[in-house]
Nucleic acid binder design. Structure first.
Length: 294
DNA sequence: AATCGTTCCTGATAGC
DNA sequence: TGCTATCAGGAACGAT
């Protein structure tokens, strides 16, 4: 489930490989992935011969800035991941550079392939077909992206800024459960179910605590926890206990540091209490009932 | 205006 | 063994 660290890892990995490459062609077996323009044929026509000028991340989106003032946006949603490599004719599958055999069932759900001018490809593997791909005029995309919450990994994301996200000045006091609030892309960008669970555990805050009732100290702990957990996630190349893979097909290492997410019934690393799970706004929330009291 | 429920998908898992 | 039902989940969208 790609969140900020996974998307950052993907963007960095692709940038190191595909900068200044040109899209030669594109193939899909699931046209619905392409949301903009509306038809895949149009998309194919428009992206052909565009050069990749930059690759970066905003929230959970990967953005390819292209020649002619265009930008390609890819959101991997839940099971999507982008792979860089070559097409193995014999086995009819994607393989990483160097043509090493890679036995990984997670990489085989290829539904969209971009062919580059260096005979390499960028492939979207997406088991559940939720990922979306859009081609924008760069200026219009930037306007859209500006509406999202700030980037918690930016230097400019200070404690004061974090506080103003949760307690906007001059607006109605924000209400709601803290987990849902920090996962809202319009409030803070890039945080999803995994890293919100981990950050709340780190900060010892119950996922259902009303955000309006957080003390100054809790806000500070949560701010530090979010920064720390995301930074660690990026450093370790994201988590891969489920579908996500880095662009070279290998797994991220954050799993070693995963404390609560999908650890229901296991012991809390701090106190030994069994991790519990509950539903917060149709999502699973994992937490330690002793460390994170309501 | 903010919040809630539904929708999109399919492999894995549980239950019989 | 083999079938069916349920679940996971980001974010757009419609409904309240």
């Amino acid at each position: 489930m790609p969140e900020l660290p996974e998307v950052q890892t993907t963007a960095d990995g692709l940038k190191s490989k595909a900068l200044n490459r040109v899209f030669v062609d594109v193939w899909t077996d699931w046209k619905k992935t392409i949301k903009k323009p509306k038809s895949f044929e149009q998309f194919r026509k428009e992206i052909k011969n565009k050069k990749i000028k930059n690759i970066w991340r905003r929230a959970k989106n990967i953005i390819f800035d292209l020649s002619d003032g265009c930008s390609l946006l890819i959101h991997q949603k839940m099971t999507g991941h982008l792979l860089y490599g070559i097409w193995n004719m014999k086995h009819r599958t994607w393989v990483p550079e160097g043509n090493k055999a890679l036995e990984d069932p997670m990489n085989k759900f290829l539904h969209l392939i971009f062919f580059l001018d260096n005979k390499k490809m960028i492939a979207l593997s997406d088991l559940r077909k939720f990922a979306k791909v859009e081609l924008w005029k760069t200026g219009e995309l930037l306007e859209e992206l500006a509406k999202l919450g700030p980037e918690p990994s930016d230097k400019s994301f200070t404690f004061e800024m974090f506080k103003s996200c949760l307690r906007p000045k001059g607006a109605l006091a924000r209400r709601g459960k803290v987990k849902q609030i920090i996962m809202d892309q319009n409030i803070i960008a890039g945080i999803g179910n995994i890293y919100s669970s981990e950050a709340l555990w780190q900060a010892k805050i119950h996922p259902e605590k009303n955000v309006a009732k957080l003390s100054e100290n809790e806000l500070k702990s949560l701010y530090r926890a979010i920064k720390k957990v995301l930074e660690l996630g990026v450093k370790l190349g994201g988590e891969s206990f489920s579908d996500y893979r880095k662009p070279d097909g290998t797994k991220g290492a954050f799993d070693k540091r995963r404390r609560v997410y999908r650890r229901e019934g296991q012991k809390c690393a701090r106190c030994g209490t069994k991790i519990k799970r509950l539903k917060v706004g149709q999502r699973s929330a994992f937490f330690c009932p002793f460390c994170q009291k309501l």
